[in-house]
Amino acid sequence: MKILYHHRTRGRHVEGVHIRGIVHALRALGHEVSVLSFPGADPEHESTTQGASKRSQIAAAITRLPGVLFECLELAYNVVTLFRVGAAIRKQQPQLIYERYSLFLFATVWLARRRGIPLVLEINDSALVERVRPLRLKGLARRIEGWCLRHCTGLVFISSYFRDQAQTAYGRIAPSVISPNAVDLSRFDPSRFDAAALRAERGLAGRMVCGHIGVFAHWHGVDAFVEAIAARMDEAPQLALVFVGDGRTLPAVRALVAERGLSDRVLLPGRVAHDEIASWIACMDYAVLPNSNHYGSPMKLFELMGMGVAVVAPDYAPVAEVISDGATGWLFPRGEIAACVQRVLDLAAQPNEHRRVGDAARRYIQHERQWRNNAEQLLTLMPGGHAVMGGQSMLEGAH
């Protein structure tokens, strides 16, 4: 089957990983997939040419525009989409269009309906949730979003929370599946690494290592976690922390670690390339996710679990859909940083628990949360797909 994948993201970081995962999985299932990206933002072919770099700089500058002006440009992008997607349809004659949904973008849904082509929307963002960038034209965004969710062929939500919010706000939406993030196990495979050598190289030999991968931002809670556990590190003298990533709160965390004299026990390597993340996870015995949100499906969760590293995580619904407490990870009451710290300290003395739960986490990922699973789920939304009924699919991949 010919599939056109359309997105309006910058195609970098987490969204790029997700796009590549779905596209490659669909191809592995035997489908012919072409990707239509925002100009200069092809996640499959990151160009280093001067022209591509300039387009990327322009895109970055646009995202820094004042709220209303930025949202007006998002709305205007429908004109560009009409021409670009229309041309791709004429040239490629796709049998399915798969779109990573973006706010204010309705042109693809309109075109697909006009041409009689099935269209599946993947919902990672919404006008219904609190966003990092405040939404100014919220009423207009919700009206457009409701129309799109009712008039596409099918919907892929990353969490049941997202779908519940959409059904409450918009009524009877298109048939849907719940499809959290996933992982490429050929890249996140612990057998590829000499963990002992990596630990020795990074000053972690003989330590019990708890790690984290992600952006240093206030809503992820890394700064609050490090501040809370720094005062109690003496309770677990064998414990070392490795927090990989960069962001706004990293300088404050670095300063705190230096001030408390913990630089030999708290490693902060900063941002690393996605190809290097697995080698850092290979150094970890277990991991921690200090905070998340009500609707997100953290990519890092799947990459850690895929490497056989179980995670201490907050009990938000999307996380609890993936982690079974005490079986494939450990949950603590969301927002209670003291409970998170206590669980991390308790686990520092339980290496057998790490192995037992970590092995179960990897088996769960192997069976249910590879990109192939996501691709198979979205295809059930095609006309004639399996067991699609009552506004949702029976194939939800729930854990």
Score class of each variant (00 low, 15 high):
Ile89His: 03
Ala255Arg: 10
Val35Tyr: 03
Arg232Asp: 09
Gly51Met: 12
Leu345Asp: 01
Arg334Val: 01
Asn181Phe: 00
Val244Ile: 14
Thr9Asp: 07
Gly214Glu: 02
Ala310Glu: 12
Gly206Met: 09
Gly67Thr: 10
Leu121Ser: 03
Asn352Pro: 00
Ala339Lys: 12
Thr328Val: 12
Ala174Leu: 04
Gly116Cys: 09
Val226Ala: 07
Ser126Cys: 07
Arg172Asn: 06
Ile365Cys: 10
Arg64His: 15
Pro251Lys: 10
Leu65Ile: 04
Val33Glu: 03
Pro333Thr: 09
Gly146Ala: 06
Arg356Pro: 01
Asp42Asn: 13
Trp219Cys: 07
Gln342Leu: 11
Leu149Glu: 02
Phe243Cys: 15
Ser191Tyr: 02
Arg192His: 15
Gln92Trp: 11
Pro237Lys: 02
Met382Trp: 06
Arg172Asp: 02
Ile89Pro: 04
Lys54Gln: 12
Asn291Trp: 07
Ser47Gln: 13
Trp219Leu: 10
Asn293Met: 00
Val156Ile: 10
Gly270Lys: 05
Arg64Val: 03
Ala217His: 14
Leu381Thr: 00
Pro66Ala: 12
Ala231Gln: 14
Gln165Lys: 11
Ala320Tyr: 08
His220Ile: 04
Asn352Val: 13
Arg142Met: 14
Gln377Thr: 01
Ala327Asn: 09
Ala231Glu: 12
Leu239Trp: 00
Phe216Pro: 03
Thr63Cys: 07
Leu239Ile: 04
Asp264Phe: 06
Arg131Met: 12
Ala287Leu: 11
Val33Cys: 09
Ala349Asn: 06
Lys300Gly: 10
Gln165Ser: 10
Val79Met: 12
Gly16Val: 04
Arg363Trp: 14
Arg131Phe: 08
Val132Gly: 08
Cys148Arg: 01
Cys148Glu: 01
Leu29Thr: 01
Arg55Gln: 11
Asp189Trp: 07
Glu122Thr: 00
Val23Thr: 11
Arg12Tyr: 00
Arg8Lys: 08
